[in-house]
């Protein structure tokens, strides 16, 4: 305002006078802010005494590599008494990964059925019931402390079909009527815990393994983070955890399953589209579903024998790379130029 007024003044003020005016305005503007800050700084001083560091931290970086403490992986509030000291961490991981001491397999997976396992955990995605609410993604992130930018499970939303001319249609464009002859497909994606996982076999240091009950996991104490398994997974289900800097993936929430609970994504699914259970038990819900409905798996051509089954997807349930066939309306892929029909050569 000050500069505007002085510009309009025909007599013309000196530059110094303008600057003085500006400073005065700035000081006036800063006063309320300072008073506000003084009020804000009051309460924490009185609250002190809980023994915990103050809750508020100065603008934490959102980049997990610059700020490894932001999600608790390396949280300074978790002291030795919380079971995460250097000495007890190794024991804690053993408890999390394999508390019952089940046999683990790094290769030759045909031995698993031969070993007569007690359980064989599978998941059924009843996509007829999936509404694409992404609650499973949120609960997985929350349960497993998955850092920003990476996902153990995600739900891609596609649209197939097209807008077609129809005299009765409800879409009016340039005086013509059209009808949306399209279908929205929600594809919950997760590690398939394959019966023949290529990611496990290629690990050079036997850090990743398949448990006797079918769960494929990574031991973060052993992984060297070489990325071979990430590249070997045909489903892009693995990633390098930017905080722990080892390979990471869905574990079917193994700590919950071992405690007799369901995986977090299953419990949070509003439409009960995700069903988890023991395929060896003929009375389990997954056995009933798979016996009753036709089902398919993602990318059967790779021969990995996935153990996550999809009901309600007729035909190909893999992503078609052609956006003209299958338009990705919602994706978690941040590094690809998805949704750009011109980016792909479609012949």
């Amino acid at each position: 305002m000050a500069t505007k007024n002085s510009d309009l003044d025909p007599g013309g003020l000196s530059r110094r006078a303008i600057l003085k005016g500006l400073m005065g305005v700035a000081a006036g503007a800063a006063m309320p802010l300072a008073a506000h800050a003084a009020l804000q700084s009051g309460p924490p001083a009185r609250k002190a005494g809980t023994g915990l560091p103050p809750e508020t931290q100065p603008e934490p970086s959102l980049d997990p590599r610059k700020n490894p403490s932001w999600e608790g992986w390396n949280n300074p509030r978790l002291g030795p008494t919380n079971g995460w000291s250097d000495a007890s961490e190794s024991a804690a991981w053993t408890t999390i990964l394999n508390p019952d001491g089940l046999a683990i397999y790094h290769d030759r997976f045909y031995r698993i059925p031969e070993s007569h396992p007690k359980h064989h955990w599978v998941m059924v995605m009843d996509t007829r019931k999936c509404v694409g609410c992404q609650a499973c993604v949120v609960s997985c992130k929350s349960e497993n402390n998955v850092p920003l930018g990476v996902y153990r499970t995600w739900v891609d939303v596609y649209q197939t079909g097209d807008t077609v001319p129809d005299p009765e249609g409800d879409v009016v464009l340039d005086g013509r009527r059209y009808r949306m002859d399209a279908k929205v497909v929600n594809m919950p994606k997760i590690c398939n815990h394959c019966a023949h996982p290529p990611c496990v076999e290629v690990c050079p240091v036997k850090a990743t393994f398949k448990r006797q009950d079918g769960i494929v996991m990574v031991d973060p104490r052993l992984c060297i983070g070489c990325g071979t398994c990430v590249n070997a997974c045909p489903y892009d289900a693995r990633f390098i955890n930017p905080v722990s800097q080892v390979a990471d993936k869905c574990t079917f929430c193994v700590e919950r399953v071992d405690a007799g609970l369901l995986p977090a994504c299953v419990t949070s699914c509003v439409g009960r589209a995700r069903v988890f259970g023991d395929i060896l038990d003929p009375n389990s819900e997954v056995s009933h579903l798979l016996a009753r409905y036709p089902h398919s798996v993602r990318h059967p051509e790779f021969g990995t024998d996935p153990q996550v089954f999809y009901i309600g997807e007729s035909g190909d349930i893999s992503t078609d790379p052609d956006p003209n066939v299958q338009h990705m309306v919602f994706t978690y892929t941040s590094n690809a130029n998805s949704n750009v029909p011109g980016g792909v050569d479609v012949i």
Partner: peptide, 20 residues
């Protein structure tokens, strides 16, 4: 590799001959 300080595992825990 992100955990290259664990290189010795390549010898002590080598996944021979399954891993390339």
């Amino acid at each position: 590799a992100w955990q290259r300080e664990r290189f010795w595992e390549l010898i002590t825990r080598d996944h021979f001959p399954y891993s390339p």
